[in-house]
Write a protein that binds this DNA or RNA. Structure first.
Lengths: 343, 343
DNA sequence: CGCTGTTATTTACGCGTGTAAACATTGTGA
DNA sequence: TCACAATGTTTACACGCGTAAATAACAGCG
């Protein structure tokens, strides 16, 4: 590695002994130049520390190589995990991921889209906040920039949507709970931010009806994204208060269940399957921490590998074909039952 | 809002009725132009949707307004939280944060620094992996770009370091544990990746010595960042195996403690303070989830507000004065005891 | 009113790259 | 050996903005 500083592509092409346009061609696609030329350039790259100025490149390219990735809340390990997977896939495809979190706030979500605008991304993968999203503004963005939604759907915004099949997954766990004990009540927030929550509620009612049971909703107050806190506080209220019609509680998501488990523990309930247990608790999502709750949480895992993979594939082909789909694709992936100690 | 598209600053300055260089001046600092001019520009901004091309701007400015923010692992809610706080502070200061996670991998850490290089950030806030970091390459980066370390120190890399005072915090909780029951053994990984872990080990030994007790280390095997998993697996082994010299276990961090609590639960140990409990467990960090463990986890909170604030202040003043400090600052912030149910 | 210092305009150039067109060179196969 | 296609070079322009220098307009003041 020589310590001579390369000023720009002109300079670099000079030390290569090759013209600048050819070097430019090389950086856009190494395969597009003759083998002997490629080798000369790569030898020089080993020797000198040069890389094209990204700002000059992006100013002149028709498209940047940037792909925006917006998740509702990075503090939630579930989203941190899926973001990581997606980032990896984007990098593999030769693009540059830009990760932004909306921190649970609709204004923040719009601010994220706004700052993505100035970066002129080739495409955007967006997991919207859901009900709280400022749909008009999100739709406007998706109109300007090729956008694929995942995790939560939002009207017909974007060119495609990939998420979980809540009907299937909730049906699956309701079925399991009924077969292995008493039919579950459904623990959820009264006004959830997430549209999946509504689908899960409906799916719960349908599943219970199909099995010949009366559905029973425990709808608790609570705002925002502090699900564990809400599950804990409202769970304690419910457990110590009125009588439940059954010993089994299915939570709308794992984070509520984690809070509820904590409340059950504090109030002396023994949670689990065995005869000595007085309560069964199940969740939904297979949150990274649900393996380590006490007892470990029975839940349904989302197929987030599939969601990530298909979302990335779709945005890439979308970019490839110039930004628009003929029809909006909506694909839901099935969940898998994860049987653990809590139910 | 007119729907006429503004092509560039030239065009925009035309509809403003002001020259382009003046408009350029406005965008660099709105206060630098006459009030009447400012009002004209702002009126036009309301009417037309224009913002300077970020690539053209950054190509010509001596400095970009970008500040890189690299954390070791975004999947860990602790880092997600501190990253969020830091992001907010950076935005407030009029800069543009770029969040990257090293996903626990040294090569990934270097790759992150490398991709930051091409973005030419004005400064970088780096929470390094620690022992696993490729120190030479990190140091080389810090030599090129004004860099402030936080959370984990790394030789004398960077212009400053802000972190927790492990000596104080460990001493604090050892003190508490000894006053409230039996003196603790120290549960940790044999070869931790985090340099803080070594400081905590040393601090534990010193604190025990000071109080007249024999220190006792439980050093378990385990690689990587799956601390809960390691805490669970090795915790189960320890709890069901050899006799412990005491009923109190202090974990090197909360994530190990979360795993250990889970293992204790599975193996029928009753954890807590009361007479009926057979085990006490404490952690370190006040992880977001430690409020919801069963029982809730007694721990020491890190003053991450202070770490975040001082780190950002420092990188900003560093940028302001041209990138170099006269001396490398190292400041440690005190932890606070968080007494909960587990010890 | 004219002076003075501040702010805006005009003009001009530079940043580092993409890209198109015309032309030159190279390698290939008949 | 020649023709042909593929690849490289040369030349030239464009992108959208920062910035400097010279000049012009302005506000405030006595």
């Amino acid at each position: 590695m020589s310590d001579q500083k390369i000023r720009n592509m002109e300079h670099f092409s000079a030390v290569c002994g090759i013209s600048r346009p050819t070097v430019s061609k090389y950086f856009n696609d190494p395969e597009s130049v003759r083998k002997s030329t490629r080798e000369k350039i790569e030898a020089a790259l080993k020797k000198y520390d040069y890389r094209p100025n990204i700002y000059a490149v992006n100013q002149n390219r028709r498209q940047t190589k940037n792909i925006g990735l917006v998740v509702p809340n990075l503090t939630d390990p579930f989203f941190a995990g899926i973001a990581r997977t997606i980032e990896g896939l984007i990098v593999e495809a030769g693009f540059n991921p830009l990760l932004l979190s909306s921190h649970g706030g609709p204004e923040h979500e719009i601010a994220n889209l706004d700052s993505l605008r100035s970066i002129k991304p080739a495409g955007v993968l967006l997991a919207p906040l859901g009900r709280a999203s400022l749909e008009d503004q999100v739709a406007e963005f998706a109109n300007e920039v090729p956008t694929v939604l995942f995790d939560a759907n939002l009207g017909d915004v974007g060119e495609a949507y990939f998420g979980s099949d809540n009907t299937q997954s909730i049906s699956l766990i309701v079925d399991y709970l009924c077969r292995s004990g008493e039919p579950p009540v459904f623990f959820e927030m009264k006004a959830p931010i997430n549209p999946n929550a509504y689908k899960r509620r409906t799916a719960y009612k349908a599943a219970m009806g199909r099995l010949g049971y009366e559905p029973h909703l425990l709808q608790v107050d609570g705002q925002g994204w502090n699900f564990e806190e809400i599950g804990f506080r409202e769970g304690a209220r419910i457990l110590t208060g009125r009588q439940l019609p059954t010993n089994t509680i299915l939570c709308s998501n794992d984070r509520l269940a984690i809070g509820l488990l904590s409340a059950a523990f504090e109030n002396g309930f023994k949670v689990g399957l065995g005869a000595e247990a007085s309560l069964r608790i199940a969740g939904h999502d297979d949150h990274p921490f649900s393996r380590f709750t006490c007892p470990s949480l029975t839940t349904v895992s989302q197929d987030y590998e599939a969601i990530a993979t298909r979302s990335v594939e779709t945005i890439l082909s979308l970019i490839d074909r110039g930004g628009r789909m003929q029809t909006r694709e909506e694909t839901l992936f099935e969940g898998k039952l994860v049987m653990r100690g809590s139910a």
